[in-house]
Amino acid sequence: MASTPKVEVRSLSKVFEGGDHDVTALSDVDMTLGDNEFVSLIGTSGCGKSTLLSIVAGLQEPSEGEVVLDGEEVVGPGRDRGLVFQSYTLFPWQTARANVEFALRGEKLSKGERTKLAREHLALVGLEQFEDSYPHQLSGGMKQRVAIARALSYRPQVLLMDEPFGALDALTRGMMQELLTRVWEEHKITVLFVTHDVEEAVFVSDRVVVMTNRPGKIKEEIPIDLPRPRAHEMLSSPEFGELYGRVLESIRSEAMAADTVPAGASR
């Protein structure tokens, strides 16, 4: 693991003040992301994963604690962190390419250079054929691929992903996971990846961070020392099975306590 952390989350708490009662979403969360590390955050529904991610993105303020990026406290959103949302966030009035180009407006680039960069990143996610398609002409998986291309295109140092494949079917999901690991292996970027799917978490990550039920705390961190590049054949290897079992065990006890069962627990 890298020596100096890229991102540090320090004793972070978040309380939502409601009318009659407050909701503590996060309580005293500590975690780090190494430089170019791929970390998955897994936890039961409502444990505060999205909240944590949006605080790291700078979209929400913590009630206590801080997020530090490269030694500096995060005070708001910025282009050094890219966010892939769980919901589809491609603009319906723009083509796939225009959507990527939109993210490049902030750079000092000519129109031609923007187009070229957008094309390159669409090719990276295998969608060069669809640059002129509008979002309504793309499948859910394709939309998320464009969203990933958009988030990578402007070279943020940290990529934050909030269950980007949550709405996809198992088969598409598997393909997207492989695509994502391949892109990450080529690109080298620090990734914080939220999921509630155990298999997905183990397959894509260097490390899996398990959260407790709400109020979310870090329960356990499990290093995933599987070789790279990862391929789907690995899913049946005993090493994978062992790690899968460990993560599942950890999240399962939380899920039992919360009376919900996370995806993947049924296998």
């Binding site: 700078g58 966010l83 949302f85 966030t89 603009f91 009035w93």
Partner: peptide, 27 residues
């Protein structure tokens, strides 16, 4: 207009005025 469109604008470093002109109005 979905709040996530607006949040996307913020993560791209856009100022409120650009978010209004480029995201909220077209949307």
């Amino acid at each position: 207009v979905p709040m996530d469109y607006v949040n996307l604008g913020y993560t791209l470093g856009l100022k409120d005025r650009s978010i209004l002109a480029r995201i909220i109005i077209p949307s």
